[in-house]
Amino acid sequence: MKEILRILERDARKTPQKIATMTGKPLSRVKEAIKKAEEERIIVKYKTVINWDKLEEEKVQALVEVKVVPQRDVGFDAIAERIYRFPEARSVYLVSGTYDLAVLVVGSTMQEVAGFVSQKLAPLESVQGTVTHFLLKRYKEDGEILGVEEQPKREPLMP
């Protein structure tokens, strides 16, 4: 199962047929394993890593530190939920350290992102304060280096 997942994590478009050859497992077992992983939400979704910076329509992203007051019984979960339901919040993490929630916010302009933080995030009752860091350049995302790295050339023939 893990080997199949690792192959899909790197390339979601690999067909079960190909994966079966790559792993030396029967096709039926591969299909079964993928189906099971999908059902159990081990595979959450198949998505594509896109370098939006290459297109005219640039996206603005900001990492927002959010300091909150945890609530009785539900801790941070209730406030986290109120935040992650906004589509503008692309990723939401509970973190240790000087603040509590790390929220990755996406918008089409700086104003839009700033508006979301000041109008929606900051006014939430249990939010004590926010610090917004706009992303200036994306080098690597989810393990993928976004710029084109020049591959060093190998000798094409070597016994």
Binding site: R154, E155, P156, L157, M158, P159
Partner: peptide
């Protein structure tokens, strides 16, 4: 080396996929 002449051939071509590497 018998593969010397392949080097010269290869150097004059583009779009070659090499399965001849040794590393």
């Amino acid at each position: 080396s018998g593969i010397r002449r392949f080097f010269d051939l290869l150097a004059s071509m583009e779009g070659v996929i090499s399965l001849g590497v040794g590393e």
